[in-house]
């Protein structure tokens, strides 16, 4: 029983990180029809930016701020202006393929210029355990959950409770009409790219202490976030949150009760089941699109 509780907490913590990444993923899709297959690498890179800042002598807190800012410039502004805007003219599919190329590019660049070895990464939460309901729960897991929940609550408050958020939603739901009523649609799209860059940098900060900084770690992360987004409903922020948590828990339970070797297969099987029986995702809405 104790084991199950620990697994659930650990699963929710990983799931919360997946949720952050999946939320960014769905935001990009909603506002700009960008399917970002480099999203996993987007999570991998900020940790290296922070490590590079620390190697240059910056204290950890400063490295975090620099890492987040640099991510927003490179993975937000740069990504939109240098890759998405020029490729979008050619369609959704060429853009998706270009993001796959970007994923390979980022991965190889980190391997080349930083290291092919896994590097340890400091945690923002102190190590150790606390006792909850008689169970020892790692501070790490709790810290991750708290930060991720704060980020998600902050984001949903922005989206649902502020005029800026309503404008972002308007730009995503119906850009033509948004423009007609005076919403600065281009600025709203840029904002979602910056928010996505912030979310992946935050996810990077939370997950790298657990899985170490490695050039290839984006593969698993990107896949988990992608599955989370689809399972939850590709077009819903709350779907991505639910999907992330679900995949995190499922992943951890599968590792413990099925087999560590089949750990990655279980979310995949689940994904196939969802696509078969509820293609719009658990919380998604069906979309109509002319082909």
């Amino acid at each position: 029983m104790s084991n199950l509780f620990d697994l659930l907490v650990a699963g929710l913590a990983t799931g919360a990180i997946y949720a952050l990444v999946a939320v960014g993923f769905t935001l990009l899709w909603q506002t700009s029809q960008t399917i970002n297959f480099a999203q996993g690498e987007f999570v991998m890179l900020p940790a290296f930016l922070m490590l590079a800042a620390m190697h240059a002598g910056a204290p950890f807190w400063l490295a975090i701020i620099l890492g987040i800012l640099l991510s927003m410039i490179l993975l937000g502004l740069g990504f939109k202006m240098l890759l998405v805007d020029p490729m979008m003219r050619h369609g959704v599919l060429p853009l998706a393929i270009a993001t796959m190329a970007l994923a390979i590019g980022i991965k190889e660049a980190v391997k080349q210029f930083f290291s092919a070895e896994a590097s340890p990464f400091p945690s923002i939460v102190p190590t150790g355990d606390v006792s909850i309901l008689g169970h020892a729960v790692s501070l790490q897991s709790i810290g991750v959950l708290v930060v991720a929940i704060l980020a998600v609550v902050g984001l949903t408050t922005l989206l649902n409770r502020t005029s800026l958020g309503h404008q972002m939603q308007a730009a995503a739901q119906n850009p033509t009409v948004a423009r007609i009523i005076g919403v600065p649609v281009e600025r709203m799209i840029l904002l979602t790219f910056l928010i996505n860059a912030f979310l992946v940098a935050l996810a990077s900060l939370l997950i790298t202490p657990i899985y170490l900084a490695k050039f290839s770690s984006g593969e698993v992360l990107g896949q988990a976030a992608f599955i989370a987004a689809i399972v939850g409903g590709f077009n819903q922020v709350r779907g991505a949150i639910a999907g992330g948590l679900l995949i995190g828990v499922l992943d951890n339970l599968a590792a413990a009760y099925v087999s560590t070797q089949y750990r990655a297969a279980v979310p995949m099987i689940f994904l196939i089941a969802v696509i078969l029986f509820r293609p719009q995702g658990l919380l998604g809405r069906a979309e109509e699109r002319t082909v």
Partner: peptide, 25 residues
């Protein structure tokens, strides 16, 4: 102001938020 043909609402926002967006400019 311009009210185009067809459905021009933001389906997932509340009715009030939809109206409120008319004041953005």
């Amino acid at each position: 102001c311009y009210v185009p043909q067809g459905r021009n609402i933001f389906p997932e926002l509340s009715v009030r938020s939809n109206i409120e967006l008319g004041g953005v400019a």
